[in-house]
Design a protein around this nucleic acid. Structure first.
Lengths: 90, 90
DNA sequence: AGTTATACCGGTATTACTATCACGCTCATG
DNA sequence: CATGAGCGTGATAGTAATACCGGTATAACT
């Protein structure tokens, strides 16, 4: 296996990412946000629904910027809080 | 064309991303950073060298976390300063 | 009823990312 | 000289992201 398929954990993480983004979009339409962020509506829909669990960095960055969502907060929201991979500051 | 190839601008942006990451890695070896961030050394090398201009969001997030680099700063460093895509506050 | 706007879904096409392998280069050390 | 660590490059393989298309459903408004 050259490229390992996405694990269920990664897919769940993608779902959380999508939920946070949808939350942040609020009442705005998918079309306007997608256009403002420079991507197709299909892509935004798949990201929000979690069907694209690991979007490109700049895709997420453009969305976060457009939605005034801090990137760090967005990344942190995707980790289930107890799954800390760097507990050296704990 | 269903999926548009990456533009030269996107590739340059990827090169800047790689440069910032390499800068942040400092004297640490690629192998240790890649292992700590959960990816192969080849992947890290390609990202740093800009040969992978648009890595996955969580790949970059893991690297930034490992290198103690703020995600927002990293994203901001990839925009050539004058190319502001949201001049509505200007 | 017809139109418009929004959103969801499946399929399809094309490109890009991730990983492994293999080889070459440089430098330091024995 | 041999060896090893670290970095670079190319080929190969397999999965995923992005975009376009057509169809469907719901709600609001004329």
């Amino acid at each position: 296996m050259v490229r390992v398929p996405l694990t269920p954990e990664e897919r769940e993480r993608g779902q959380r990412l999508g939920e946070v983004l949808r939350e942040a979009r609020g009442p705005r339409s998918m079309a306007s946000v997608a256009a403002a962020a420079g991507m197709s509506v299909e892509t935004l829909r798949k990201i929000e629904s979690g069907r694209v669990p690991t979007p490109a960095f700049f895709t997420v960055a453009a969305l976060a910027d457009e939605l005034a969502l801090p990137l760090a907060e967005l990344a942190a929201a995707c980790v289930p809080a107890s799954a800390d991979d760097h507990p050296r500051t704990a």
